[in-house]
Design a protein around this nucleic acid. Structure first.
Lengths: 207, 207
DNA sequence: CATCTATGTATACGCTGTCAACATTACTGT
DNA sequence: ACAGTAATGTTGACAGCGTATACATAGATG
């Protein structure tokens, strides 16, 4: 139960320490350059110690991606809660929160969606169910918006997919560096994602 | 000038062969598991031969991403050309082509957008200018659609960004496996991307 | 206190990207 | 035609990587 590190043979809370340190490392070097051995060194343990807590490097990455999806669910839900009863505003703020989170954590976002995780090897249920949680919030939001007559009476899943795609695409373009100069700063991003989502709501065609 | 391989000390066209073989390898194993040494073996040369044609592993990946952006530009432009004079249809077909290409080449798409390429080390102009070409086509399309009164009179760049984000997001969700079961098959994808883009045009709100 | 299990270490293996030194071929100018 | 040089390929070496195996230590349980 000794939580101080460096003094005892047993670390006390390696599992948590590893995840925290890994997130830090990935933030520094990107998910591509991240290595288990450097992580172990940073955590002050031997390079095979992580294997007592994670079957694989892949398993560690999955764990980190999970935390990413959890905070994604939290943030978007919080954003929606702040505008309860105003589905239109809720949708916009959810999207803004999504994009802002991606901008704050580009490397983790890439880890979550970029193909660094080997889906064949991972239990996959965990990750998918976490991602589903985030998506489900969106579905609920749209469903209630439909019932109050704000959103069109299209298939809910389709509406949700459209909004998700829009926001996700913007987030990925930003974190991928494709929008350099257009959307670097925090407030630019806030503005941009709100505008883009307004377009989705109002439509692009003339009337 | 001898183009037959395997008989001469000099290969004749290693550069091209390497790129072709690399694309095949990445298709098989994903961009994450791709290795230079395996590539060299596949091409039938020593493991350092690629360094005569590419400064880095990163440089090779950049070259492959470039070809990806080139075919993306081609395909979307072709799709648009087939419906010249009908901007609405053009926009939809451009998007469908974008998503279909991504579905056909998920690993290359991940390579292009997923953060596998180290932007610090790469000349970056090449890659960005290629990506800009693809984007510019979209901008032109929207501009002409605005002038013929089909699209709303919003800032062109913003409209282009919105459509790009939408389509790109859908493509990334599909290639990332986030839409398993919803959009696996080719015709499902065609249908889905067309529907989603119609939503962007018509808008989500009730009128 | 003895024992079992959880957790950490030491060592070894093959694979990786990359560098330096060398070999072979193609191209160049005289 | 031929010498010299640049382009292209090979060999060997190095450190770093993920991971399997065998061993060490400590906490928990009886």
């Amino acid at each position: 139960m000794n939580k101080r590190s460096g003094e005892t043979y047993h670390h006390g809370n390696l599992h948590g320490t590893l995840i925290a340190a890994a997130i830090e490392l990935i933030r520094d070097k990107g998910p591509n350059a991240f290595s288990l051995r450097e992580l172990a060194k940073k955590a002050g343990v031997s390079h095979t110690a992580p294997y007592r807590h994670f079957k694989d490097k892949n398993a560690l990455l999955v764990a980190i991606a999970e935390t990413g999806f959890k905070t994604l669910t939290e943030r978007t839900r919080n954003a929606a809660m702040q505008f309860d009863g105003d589905p239109k505003r809720q949708l916009i703020e959810t999207g803004v929160a999504y994009v802002e989170l991606a901008l704050d954590n580009p490397e983790i976002t890439q880890l979550m969606f970029g193909g660094f995780i080997d889906m064949e090897k991972c239990p996959k249920e965990n990750l998918d169910s976490e991602a589903d949680n985030a998506f489900q919030g969106l579905v609920n939001l749209i469903e209630s918006g439909k019932q109050s007559g704000v959103f069109r009476n299209e298939e809910t899943e389709l509406l949700a997919l459209a909004t998700w795609s829009m926001v996700h695409g913007l987030a990925m373009l930003i974190t991928g560096g494709q929008l350099c100069g257009i959307a670097d700063e925090q407030d630019q991003v806030r503005n941009l994602s709100a505008k883009v989502e307004s377009l989705l709501m109002e439509g692009i065609l003339t009337r």
